[in-house]
Each structure stands twice: as C-alpha cells, then as structure tokens.
Design a protein around this nucleic acid. Structure first.
Lengths: 188, 188
DNA sequence: CCCCCAATCTTGTCGGTGACAAGATGAGAG
DNA sequence: CTCTCATCTTGTCACCGACAAGATTGGGGG
C-alpha cells in the first residue's frame, strides 16, 4: 500500500458524499470512510482534523456548487428556483449537511464566504424579478422558502407519490404559483 | 433509587426533546439520556427497544401535536400555514426528526397513522381554500413547501437576521404572497 | 548525487456509545 | 403470603472519534 495516496483528500470527500447519500449524515463514520478509501482509520484526521472539519469542507464544496448552479441558471427567476431544486436533488449529501449548522463549523471563514457568494446570486435574481424595494427581500425569501421546502420534502420522501418521479417537472407548476404566471409580477 | 420510576417513558421522551433542542438529533445519546433521567444506561432499551424506537415514539408524538395544531388553526388556510410554522419553531426537536426518516422507523403503523391524520387536515384546508380540482393538490403542495421551507431555513439560522426575532410575524407577509392577498384565489 | 526534512499515513490507545444478555427488584394478582 | 412478570440494573462486546507517537516517502538544499 502506497504511503502517498495521491489525492486522498478528494477521495475521502467523494466517499463521504457516497456514504451520506446512502444513509444520511448522522450515520457517517470516519473509520468506515477510511476503510472505503483503503487507508488507515486515522488518515482522515490528517486532512480534516476531525469529523466537523470533514463536513465543513463538504459544505464549502456544496455552497460553491450551488452558487455555480444558480449562476448558470441565468436571469429567469423561476429557472433559478428550479436550479436550486435540481442542486438539492443531484447533490443530496451536500444539501443535507449545508442546512444543519450543528454538524460543521458554520462560522469558518471559507463557509461564510462561499455561502455569502451563493446567496448574493439569489438576492440579485430576486431584485431582478420583482424590481427594487422592500418587496424584493420578501419575494426572495418566499421563493427561497418555496423551493427549499419542496426540495426538503421531496428528499425526505414526504410528498405524495402521485407527484411523479421527476422533482423538477413536479415543481414547475408549483413554482409558477408564486408570483402568478407572469401576470402578477415577474416582468421577465 | 426506586426501581420503578413511575413514568420513565414520558420522562425519557421529555429529556430527549430537551437534548435534541440543545444539540440536534445526531448528538442524542441514550446513555446521557438515561443519566439525565437518573436511571441505568440500559433502562431506555426496555421502553423503546433501541434508538430508532425512541425516535419513532418521538415522531408519533410530533405528528399528533402537528395534527392538533393544524386542527385548532381552523379554516383559514393562511392561519394553518402559520400554525405549521409555529409548531416547527415551538417543537423544534420533533420537527427536526419527523422529516428525517432514516433516523426512525417511518414505516411503523403508528407513524403512518399519525402522519396520515396530519396531512389529511392539510389536504382538507387546501381544498377549502382553492376549491376542488387538480389545482387544490398543487396549491396544497405549494403552501406546504412554502411554510416548511421557511420553517427549515429559520431553524437552521439561514435567513438573514433582519427578518426579526419572531418567525410567525416575519412569515405572515411571505405566506400572503402565495395566492395573492385574497384577490387571486383564496375565496375564503 | 545524496541526505535530510516535512508532509503524509500507520499503529496503538482511551473514553464513550449502542446493543444485547443475564440477573435483581418490587408491584399487584390470586 | 407467594408467585409472576413488567421494570430496571449490571456486565460485556464491538465500534467509534480523538489523540499520541512512530513509520514512510518524496522533494529540495547541500
């Protein structure tokens, strides 16, 4: 066994994502993680310090991916909402940890920076959709709550099964209920 | 030390709620729980089998409380939404476990019964607000997503601090954004 | 070219935890 | 009064996270 793995840090993060997707963040075990990566049980500590450190790194990665996804979604606020949902579903592991601050070091500067960048994209979209003013803030929170709630409920399996298998398709009409269908705000 | 506690089951559930509110469901320890209740480390197992059993009991209690809160909120759909939020904030521990099915036995009959009863109340409210038809289902999901998302974001501390300290007051205008302010649905 | 140093990974250990087994206790039925 | 059984305790095991100390190796300075 080579002493120098090559890219153990990334391998551990990838394995962590896999394990969290299988059985949730609570069940994540650093030792099992090391086992999957083929290293000793203490190897992860070198790269991340402790479990919180690992999850902190995962969260930073998550906020970066989210910011990127929102940016790529472009100007349309509805599409940004659906991109948020797509991110949550496609990166369930990241998403589930990101909004559970007791699991990681939420006050770490890298986390604050990455999350600030992501929410800035969101804010910008809200202002573009509603126009400036006090309403923009509320509209942003409403839209964020809607897609975040839908994503959470979808992931937890709480939504009735007749909404179908594709969360984005199922969410589209729901997202359009907020702000009406263009007739009630959303100048585009 | 009395061998018969009297109402150990309830005492354990109460202590569990307290501990989860302090540091989340992941950090819950059955042994610390037993310590707080003043019993031996194996006493909880007798009442709940294992950790999942304890959380299952907690979730059943949670869905019962939620159904009750929604029922008491009455006919107004907006008020039901705010009652949902109030439940989430006032019973953070229950709420946090209820929507994390990997932590408990979601398929247990008591859980299914309690959750079915709660969502029936929600469904009834949605139909009353929007009228019958296919839209009622979507309206229900939209409203549920909105308040669930707001509650989750509030609890996780993700919302900007300028929304204030009272979640229900902060959410009221947000909830009213969906369905407009009575002019766009919500016949009452 | 070689050696040393520092980053990387391993081995060993400790206290804490969940689950299980076996035993002690006492409340209530008869 | 005694038996019975639900309730709780004691004891144990494997696993986990954190820490300490040691082994290995790649790369840069001599």
């Amino acid at each position: 066994m080579a002493y120098h793995h090559g890219d153990l840090r990334r391998a551990l993060l990838d394995a962590a994502v896999e394990m969290i997707e299988e059985s949730g963040p609570a069940a994540l075990s650093l030792r099992e993680l090391a086992r999957r990566a083929g290293v000793s049980h203490a190897a992860p500590a070198h790269h991340f310090g402790d479990k919180q450190g690992l999850l902190t790194a995962l969260v930073v990665q998550g906020f970066e991916l989210l910011g990127q996804a929102l940016t790529e979604a472009g100007e349309d606020f509805h599409e940004a909402g659906l991109a948020y949902l797509r991110f949550a579903v496609d990166h369930r592991a990241h998403f589930e940890v990101m909004f559970r601050p007791e699991l990681y070091r939420a006050e770490a500067p890298e986390v604050l920076a990455a999350s600030a960048r992501a929410s800035e994209v969101l804010d910008h979209g809200a202002r573009a959709a509603v126009g400036a003013g006090q309403d923009a803030e509320m509209a942003g929170i409403a839209a964020w709550s809607l897609v975040h709630g839908f994503a959470s409920l979808w992931i937890s399996g709480a939504l009735p099964s007749r909404v179908g298998e594709d969360p984005v398709a199922a969410a589209r009409p729901v997202v359009h209920m907020l702000f009406g269908r263009g007739e009630n705000g959303v100048p585009r």
